[in-house]
Design a protein around this nucleic acid. Structure first.
Lengths: 146, 146
DNA sequence: CAAGATTGAACCCTCAATCTTA
DNA sequence: TAAGATTGAGGGTTCAATCTTG
């Protein structure tokens, strides 16, 4: 047998639909209330939480799992929107700093985000299913099949 | 309490990680073996399976959940890569037809896809957890919180 | 040289405006 | 007019090539 069975296909279809729906709902709430995109939010929360408002671009990339190019392109857009500034770091590299505007927006966004995650991911899952879900998600994240 | 608890955060983090990982692994196998992107694969499978190789653009958009603009942009790229052709439909609209090259690639891609879904989504989940996972995914897909 | 960063091209998605035609 | 489709702009991602500098 080569193609997917009806059972297998149902799981795949539901997986795609749920993955997309949850992410889209959470992001939509952040965007509509602050104008921040998902990557914007990721950058600002990390620089504020882990760096107190400033952080080396290098370290930020590692923390986000972004490569240099992706982060550079994104910071260029964020800088042009007044969310962050960039200046040369002592020694080598670049320091990213959150602007006042960025700080204000991320403050709001963090609360919207927490609320949205609760409503769109936590609450819809039966409390009795949560442990199973966590173990399944761990297996799927880890799965490093050839 | 406003921000996420450690428990809540674990679920959210695992959810994002697993969602991304499974999708990325499946798509990577299709792309590396055929050069087709995920949207390319979606278009080609639908036109072949549901239309026998031809389909109205209109109907294709509905079947994919794409709006007209998104599909139009994507078909423009696919046409330039020789995967499909477009010509006016009898009456109104446009007919999309899969080229020979498109047909060959999607044949391979469907098998790679089925195999990848099995290895990256079906098999890593304990058989005893499958029913719970399906019910959780249904709840999350459906969830239409305000 | 090697690490840190940027750039350009090609792909992808969304929104708003426009075009075409039954 | 309304349905079907296209277009342009702006944001996002990836890859390969390049720049910069200790």
């Amino acid at each position: 047998m080569v193609l997917l069975s009806a059972q297998e296909n149902e799981l795949w279809t539901l997986w795609k639909k749920a993955s997309d729906a949850v992410r889209a709902r959470v992001v939509a709430e952040i965007t509509s209330s602050t104008g921040l995109s998902d990557p914007d939010f990721g950058v600002l929360t990390r620089v504020v939480e882990l760096g107190g408002g400033q952080m080396r671009q290098n370290k930020l990339a590692a923390s986000m799992g972004y490569d240099r190019s992706r982060l550079s392109h994104h910071l260029t857009r964020m800088e042009s929107r007044g969310l962050i500034t960039r200046h040369p770091a002592p020694g080598v590299g670049v320091v990213v700093a959150v602007t006042e505007q960025g700080r204000d927006l991320v403050r709001t966004a963090r609360r919207v985000h927490a609320d949205a995650v609760r409503r769109h991911l936590i609450e819809p899952v039966d409390a009795s299913d949560r442990a199973t879900l966590i173990s399944v998600l761990k297996a799927l994240s880890a799965s490093e099949v050839s």
